[in-house]
Design a protein around this nucleic acid. Structure first.
Lengths: 219, 219
DNA sequence: GGTTACAGTGAACGACCGTACACTGAACAG
DNA sequence: CTGTTCAGTGTACGGTCGTTCACTGTAACC
């Protein structure tokens, strides 16, 4: 048996080489609160979280929570901000000028796949709370509508869509967003190894939708 | 001023002409619990409900709750059963042999609209809990997958889809289901007077999807 | 008509909740 | 070096939670 010390049982050295200013420490605790909340939210709705749970998860005493947020709802808003930042990053990343439909489709789906796998907590939170009701759901809804609007503008640049009415463009954009959201949920619920099948189906769905575009008459 | 008595302030006559057996009374209380829960769920997730709240809503003392359900989770399961019964009713109602795509589309959307408006609580519960995680979400997911499977079988009867692989048929069915779910959520979030616009958009989305069908190559 | 089954009552418990308040000690400003 | 600021502590409160237990009154049964 080794006489090595299990370092996990020792008090952690207080940040070896970083003196850390006061506001830095505060920011870290704030982030620890957000991280703890996000972790607890892996399989429960936000409304079932308690302030005390989150504080304990972040390693602080309940009353210290108020140094960072006035209420759980305020933390929820911060959580929406953080996660929609990830969402916007994904959108920016997916907006690479595409040549063909097929190229655009597979590139977009690949981007979604990549971002979901790299930020599962964020996307789980977004999709869970999107339909949960309450102020957070409304905030997420607003964000998604903004996204859909941007997408409609992007779509308008495509030759086959040049003549579409803005209303029809929004209809198409919403349709694409809802396919993407469905795909995200499927990825989050997937057992390991199912990713390829899910992204494949997602590409098919988008292809089918876009297949109808050249034949569209607004009625 | 009339001297009529406001009957709402009187104790209700204990079921005027019905002697009501014991098991009838029990069933009524059970239903009152389900109704109370559904009402409380209008703007909060199931996981945030307390047993005491539901019992109070049903007009019984908390401990009497256990005469009907062993736990809140068991009540949740019963709620899923009740609401999916409504869902199945809608599906049965929508499955009227259609002649044309357009006829099928508008008839289906009209059925969805009608059922959602007649059972808002049920559909709100289903769409809210669908993505909320936990055992209820899983039960609802199973139910939706059954529904999608049935739809795939129905679709296979259509001439243009006769040659499609079962996999592609499921892809199409899932796509249609997700459009319908999106529509349901939109209807539940709608302000009064917006219904026509929402159902119109839903029809457009379905038309666009089905427009691609004749040009589909699986690849 | 006497007995039983059982839906609903009411008091009590220990656990957890949000929040108030007074505090400590280290980073900071002068 | 000295005084201030403030993130984090510890105690304490009143309220709600799920669950226990002994109970009551009446419908149902023989």
């Amino acid at each position: 048996m080794s006489n090595a010390v299990d370092i996990r049982t020792l008090d952690p050295v207080p940040e070896p080489l970083t003196p850390v200013s006061r506001q830095e420490r505060k920011l870290r605790t704030r982030q620890a609160l957000l991280d703890a909340a996000l972790e607890l939210l892996a399989d429960r709705p936000f409304a079932s979280l308690s302030l005390r749970e989150v504080a304990k998860g972040a390693g602080i005493v309940p009353t210290a929570f108020y140094r960072h947020f006035a209420s759980m709802e305020e933390l929820g808003v911060a959580l929406v901000e953080e996660t929609t930042r990830t969402l916007r990053g994904m959108i920016r990343s997916a907006r690479t000028d595409p040549d063909t439909y097929q190229g655009m489709i597979s590139a977009s789906v690949a981007t979604v796949h990549e971002f979901v796998r790299a930020n599962e907590d964020h996307f789980r939170f977004l999709t869970r709370e999107r339909y949960a009701g309450g102020p957070l759901a409304r905030a997420i809804g607003v964000e998604l509508r903004l996204f859909s609007g941007d997408l409609a503008i992007d779509l308008a640049r495509f030759a086959p869509l040049r003549s579409w009415s803005t209303e029809d463009l929004h209809m198409l954009a919403d349709l694409i967003v809802s396919v993407m959201l469905t795909t995200i949920v499927e990825l989050l619920e997937a057992r390991p190894g199912e990713d390829a099948k899910i992204t494949g189906t997602a590409e098919k769905r988008l292809r089918l939708v876009l297949l109808g575009v050249p034949h569209w008459k607004s009625s």
